[in-house]
């Protein structure tokens, strides 16, 4: 039985990638037995596929989110507490037909929108830009939220997370708002400053010494902070 040795390359690729139907697969298999060139082509494609896979098999991100057991336990306890609070709040909201506390990520919101809805207990304000108007708006939002929580006597925490060029806001040598930040820190003990360590390291590698506003803590990466806090019920606001 003669087979057509001229099988398109695309079909041979699809054969190796397991994209062909049964009939087509059988046709290629039969051709590979009778035509050494086809067999060789199939082997080459398979080898290339393996080489590409091998070349990136051990590529890992520069920093990993550490899966520390004690951290997990703490997260578990926090999740249970959050669950209980969530159920109670959800039930309460259902009864009174009001908007409940939002533990899900619903996208970009600002302080004005939050003021209309119920104020969440914890807010993560994220800035990744050094544009002066963004820095100003971020601090303004932080101040508004802290004031609002204080006036309504509700338990509240606010974390200001800065990464990329937004780190400038928390750099004591670059930020135009050092005094305003210090005033917020002085007036509100529930105000937390977080700087992305990866951005700091990157600047350091470029020979730039980074001096942070006193009281600023560092987090591994901005995404670490988001991945840890959002599931724990923090409300996200991107400036």
């Amino acid at each position: 039985m003669m087979h057509d040795p001229h099988i398109p390359d695309a079909t041979l690729n699809a054969f190796v990638d397991d994209e062909l139907d049964e009939t087509e697969r059988e046709r290629i298999l039969a051709a590979s037995v009778t035509t050494p060139e086809i067999k060789q082509q199939i082997c080459e494609i398979g080898a290339l596929k393996s080489m590409v896979r091998h070349a990136y098999a051990h590529a890992t991100p520069p920093q990993h989110m550490a899966a520390q057991p004690h951290k997990r336990v703490r997260h578990g306890v926090a999740a249970c507490c959050l669950l209980v609070v969530g159920v109670l709040v959800g039930w309460y909201a259902h009864l009174f037909n009001q908007i409940g506390v939002n533990t899900a990520v619903t996208g970009k919101q600002n302080a004005a929108q939050l003021a209309v809805a119920a104020l969440p207990e914890r807010v993560l304000l994220h800035i990744d830009s050094d544009q002066p108007e963004k820095m100003k708006a971020g601090l303004q939002e932080a101040e508004n939220l802290l004031k609002q929580a204080e006036q309504s006597h509700t338990p509240f925490k606010l974390a200001l997370l800065a990464n990329k060029s937004g780190l400038d806001l928390l750099r004591s040598d670059k930020s135009p708002y050092v005094e305003q930040i210090a005033a917020l820190q002085k007036n509100y003990s529930n105000f937390e400053l977080l700087a992305c360590k990866q951005t700091i390291d990157r600047l350091h590698n470029q020979g730039i010494d980074v001096h942070l506003v006193p009281g600023t803590q560092t987090s591994n990466t901005a995404i670490d902070t988001l991945a840890t806090r959002l599931p724990a019920g923090w409300h996200y606001i991107k400036v």
Partner: peptide, 18 residues
């Protein structure tokens, strides 16, 4: 750049999860 792209993607995914 790969790390930035990864972080950007993960951030967007977490934000748009709903």
């Amino acid at each position: 750049l790969a790390d930035d792209l990864t972080q950007e993607s993960l951030t967007k995914a977490l934000k748009k999860l709903a």
